[in-house]
Design a protein around this nucleic acid. Structure first.
Length: 490
RNA sequence: CGGGGUGUAGCGUAGCCCGGUAUCGCGCCAGCAUGGGGUGCUGGAGGUCGCAGGUUCAAAUCCUGCCACUCCGACCA
């Protein structure tokens, strides 16, 4: 487990890559831009999934599954959506291989598909072509469906979890009778995402609306949650789109109203991906490894026994197992690390690397005194606690850690939102401090592009809780009615 | 797509300029000691040197071509 420690302050992206690998979250796969999510990383993803899935179901959604492959003719129906994703689509052109004279496997040219199939970069096309068959009457609405799936986007530049060619996500696709209902759904799911990010991931987010430039291809309006990472760069953590009637029109999905009129269906789609894993790593972790919020940690407490003789070992183990039982009765996940092949110090370092929120050390001394040593991963504080009532103590402490992690991230975020009023200030803050920059913009896509070209900063969103405020665009001096949030982003 | 880097044991590497059958560390296996913050010692196993071709008595090393991955940009719901 010996590995080179890389400091965040020295090389943030190297730190990130190393941490993802060393903490056993994921590694690069044989294919460019693809990753293998390892068991420990996948366990975290499963916690994310379980919680989100619960929240989706609580808001009335059901899971279903649609196919990976989309006929090209379906894909091209919603023009903007197709154009937006065209550059990053993998295409299936043949359905068979064969063995050639050199005993090499080659594509069988005789097995060329009549129509090419697109590997889904997102599923609106295949889903709306299906919904067409499901919707005739207002009685068939709303349709509230989510799917857990993989998608593929052939990105030029990839990064583990943050942007991989193939990634796992969930995509909700809903169909409604009215525009208002669809908009309400879009906003509801944004709230679900925000609550998940803050309460479970411990990552504070800004809820907002995307500008036209940053909007999902095919959407009328894209809502988003934006987080801030420790290096001062923003990360889009989830999006919820109001699709209007764009897809209904593209796929000719109409329903008959109570009054007997034929109308196009209103749509939404919303998604979060394994990118959230990247957010989790970048928001909380330190130079010693991961720091996981208890609510998403696969292991809440790791018990490390300390002993010399077999007799000591037995006593320590008895106490450890007793405590584990108590903790498990409170629904806590406990790892008793009784590997005899590693020394305690090694284990301490390893579990810190993996971000386990609480470590419990139990040695002969503790057995004698009726105590254990508890070490918090987030603050590195250690304390000796009596065994009596340890279960509720630990449970409360985990809640406290969850809070503390969120608070630390929120303090960081809040102190990194800078209001600026001039172009010079904008450039300087961007270069020296990073973070979110709240500034006036004249509302034109053209100016947004120019700013991006000059500084690499993009408008992350127009915050939902924005107060109207008249001012002058930092670049052009044109009048502006509100501030927007700029940042360099992943 | 532009620029850089890498490809040698499970991982990380030295060797390449100057050709002679591969170095070191971690990990792995065995044993003994050790055990409250990454343990020490001893012994051991493990290699088509990315692929193909060429030069040569001899290629990890020189030449040609190819491939892959990665990092930094451009791009990116």
């Amino acid at each position: 487990m010996a590995f080179e420690k890389i400091k965040r302050s020295e090389n943030y992206s190297e730190w990130y890559n190393n941490l993802v690998k060393n903490a056993d979250l994921a590694e690069h796969a044989a294919v460019k831009g693809c990753m293998v999510i390892k068991p420990y990383g996948y366990a975290i993803w499963e916690k994310i999934q379980q919680q989100l899935d619960k929240m989706f179901k609580q808001t009335g959604h059901s899971n279903a599954y649609f196919p990976l492959l989309i006929p090209k003719s379906f894909f091209e129906k919603e023009e903007k959506n197709a154009a937006g994703f065209a550059k990053e689509c993998a295409v299936v052109t043949h359905y068979r291989l064969k063995v050639d004279e050199n005993r090499k496997i080659i594509v069988d040219e005789d097995a060329k598909l009549e129509e090419e199939l697109i590997i889904r970069p997102t599923s609106e096309a295949i889903i709306w072509s299906t919904y067409k068959g499901w919707i005739q009457s207002y009685r068939d609405l709303p349709i509230l469906i989510n799917q857990w799936a993989n998608v593929m986007r052939w990105e030029m530049r990839t990064r583990l979890f943050l942007r991989t060619s193939e990634f796992l996500w969930q995509e909700g696709h809903t169909a409604h009778a009215t525009s208002d209902e669809a908009i309400a759904e879009t906003k509801q799911m944004l709230e679900v995402y925000a609550e998940f990010a803050e309460t479970f991931m411990g990552v504070p987010v800004v809820k907002g609306v995307k500008t036209e430039n940053e909007r999902f291809a095919g959407a009328i309006e894209t809502y988003c949650i934006e987080g801030l990472m420790q290096d001062g760069k923003a990360l889009q953590m989830g999006t919820s789109h109001f699709l209007g009637q764009n897809f209904a029109k593209a796929f000719d999905v109409k329903f008959q109203t109570k009054e007997g009129k034929l109308e196009y269906v209103w749509a939404t789609s919303w998604g979060v991906s394994t990118r959230l894993m990247g957010a989790l790593v970048m928001a909380h972790s330190d130079d010693d490894g991961l720091v996981l919020p208890p609510k998403l940690a696969p292991i809440h407490v790791v018990i490390v026994p300390i002993y010399k003789t077999d007799a000591e070992r037995e006593k320590v183990e008895t106490l450890a197992l007793e405590i584990r039982k108590k903790l498990e009765a409170l629904d806590l996940s406990v790892k008793f690390d009784n590997r005899d092949t590693y020394k305690p110090g090694f284990k301490f370092a390893e579990w810190e690397l993996k971000g386990v929120p609480l470590r419990m050390g139990i040695g002969p001394r503790d057995v004698e005194n009726g105590t254990v040593e508890l070490a918090r991963r987030d603050t590195r504080e250690k304390s000796v606690i009596g065994v009596e009532g340890i279960d509720t103590y630990v449970k409360n402490l985990l809640d406290e850690i969850q809070e503390a992690i969120y608070k630390r991230a929120k303090d960081f975020r809040d102190s990194n939102i800078h209001e600026v009023n001039t172009w010079d200030e904008f450039v300087e803050v961007l270069d020296t401090k990073g973070g979110f920059i709240s500034a006036h913009w004249d509302g034109t896509a053209d100016v947004e592009e120019k700013i991006k070209g000059l500084t690499k900063a993009t408008i992350r969103c127009i915050p939902l809780n924005n107060k109207p405020e008249s001012g002058k665009c930092i670049l052009t001096g044109n009048p502006s009615v509100q501030r927007v949030l700029f940042a360099k982003a992943y």
